[in-house]
Structure formats: C-alpha cells, structure tokens
Design a protein around this nucleic acid. Structure first.
Lengths: 155, 155
DNA sequence: TTCCAAATAAGAATAAAACCTATTTAAGAA
DNA sequence: TTCTTAAATAGGTTTTATTCTTATTTGGAA
C-alpha cells in the first residue's frame, strides 16, 4: 500500500466520520477532525496523552479535556477502538478492521495481527442469558520478541 | 456444589498458594493469605479498593499499598486474573478455570460464562512472529439485560 | 446575519495507583 | 529456641490519569 493509497484511505475515512457525526446530530469541529486524524496516523496504539501532544503541535490551544471527550465520543460511535487490559493505561486504536491484539505481559507493547481462524469465531449462543452480545475481543497475551531476548540474556 | 465442597476447594486453593509462594522464595504473610482469601470469596470481580475494604474488616491495619502489591504479585504468579478494558478500573478475578467474560459496555458489569466452542479456540500460529503466546483472552462486549431494559423504557 | 445549544479552553478537583521510609516479620541459620 | 537479615508492611506522601466546572466560543440551523 503506497502513500497515495494511504492518503486516499484517510480521506475516505474522514468523509465517513463527517457523515457519522452529521447523522448523529453532532458538530463537526476542527478539534474532532484533528484528533481523529492523529489517531489514524498513529500505528502504535497511542494513549490519550500522546494524542494530545501530537494534536497540540498543529493546534497549540487544544485542551486535554477535549482530547479525552473526543476519544470517548469516537469510541462510542464505533469510529475507533479502545484496548488496554490490566496495568496499562487505556490505549486507542484507529484500526476498525477485524483484527486481534498480541499484548506483551512484561513491557505492555501491543501488536495487531490478523487471523482467519480467529475472525471466524462466533459469539456463542450461551450469552443470550446475560444480555445482547455485540462484538468479540480476542487478545493473545504472552512475551514479545524483545522481552524474550532480554529474558535470555538475564541467564 | 454445596458449602462443604466450596470450603474444601478454598482450602485446596490456599494450600496451592502456599506451595507456589514457597517455590518462588516468597514469604507467606498473613496479609497475602487474607487478601487472596477475599478475592476467592468474591464472585463479582472486585476492584482493588473493594478488596481493601473487605480485608480491612478482619485486618484493620492493612494498607492499601499492600493490597495493590499483593494483587499484582498474585497476578504475576498466575494465581488470579485481571481484567477490565476501557473506561473501567482494573478488576480482579479469582476464577482461574478456563472461562470467558461478558462485559456490558454501558454499566461495566462483568459476567463469567463458559463456552466449549470458545474453549477450543487455539492461539494462532501467526503470532509466532510477534513473540511467544501464552494465553488467550476472549471477551464478548454488548449490553447486559438490565441496560437493555433501561434502554427499552427510555422510549 | 442572528441565535442558541453544543463544544471548547483552562484550570481546579478527584481518585487510582505508586512511592518513600521507618518498622515489623517470616523463615533460615546457629 | 533464639538470632539474623532480607523481604514485606504501614502510613503518609506524591504522582498522574481522568473528570469536572465555568466562562467563552462556535457550528450550523433559521
């Protein structure tokens, strides 16, 4: 995927967001577009603070509160994902394609991966009793390559 | 499963913990046992603060810091689990049997469920490139019964 | 252009989690 | 058993992510 394709994708995506916001009766603010833009550009599951710093480079007056509010909003609208188990702070993920996460239990790094096997996993019938299932989150936890290397050199 | 069986289970479990701590060269403190005991007794995925309050009933001098340290320790030793995505604070789960979670995206309630289909899902080969997979976390997100009811009454 | 509800900025407040240090204690050694 | 010591704890302080408050601004409909 070349840079032109990426630019194209980003533009399509921004258009999609404009539509979703309009349909939901929400305002299309400069801040919201900039924040979404930064989340999309990042491919490393940034946290709110990191996004704030990036956005501030172009919009020096943006407030951290707005970044948080906007991220939760985008999340509620299904335009981005959130992840981040246990000790980590919440991290955001602009990748809304079907994919899964590998989380290192030592350093906390999160890598996306795709897996046709996992994509096929269906929400089980059994949860009917508990409520209405909407989506599955599948996560593999373990040790990433770097931490495995560190572990080996500890001996 | 009657109360006798449960008591038996808890005792077996406490013995197991004693062994794991000893094997790891860690001290078997009164605090650690009390904290684990409380996590085991709770069946509602309590957070650290809740566990702290429970433990304090029997051990009025226990410190919150000790509760946190102990919970992370038990987690590292694989004696308990942690869960809690997105907006929620971290919650702990003494159920180390294979099971899965249903998380309500509105109120945050977490219910355990079992599912032979999901139990059979294997860690995919593809993650070899990323590191060493250890376990899968499968979570179904949606709306719980109570929140569905509330939603219906909003109309 | 005017208007107003929605959104924002800035700073204050809250609360979860971690840190610091003097004191206590588990458990191995004598 | 008593002694020893590194590990663990209590209690208080600090940090920091996230939310709240309020005055101001602004998107977008009329």
């Amino acid at each position: 995927m070349g840079p032109d394709t990426q630019t194209q994708d980003l533009q399509n995506r921004m258009n999609h967001v404009r539509n979703v916001l309009r349909e939901s009766g929400l305002k299309l603010t400069h801040q919201r577009l900039e924040i979404l833009n930064e989340v999309c550009k990042a491919d490393d599951h940034p946290d709110a603070e990191t996004i704030y710093r990036s956005v501030r480079e172009r919009m020096p007056t943006v407030s951290l509160d707005t970044v948080y509010r906007t991220l939760w909003l985008l999340l509620d609208l299904g335009l981005i994902n959130a992840l981040g188990p246990s000790r980590e702070r919440v991290r955001f993920d602009a990748n809304t394609e079907v994919h899964h996460h590998f989380v290192c239990r030592k350093c906390g790094v999160i890598h996306d991966f795709t897996s046709p096997e996992l994509d096929g996993v269906q929400i089980p019938e059994a949860i009917r009793d508990l409520g209405q299932g909407e989506k599955m989150h599948i996560e593999v936890r373990g040790l990433c390559r770097d931490c495995l290397k560190d572990k080996a050199s500890d001996c």
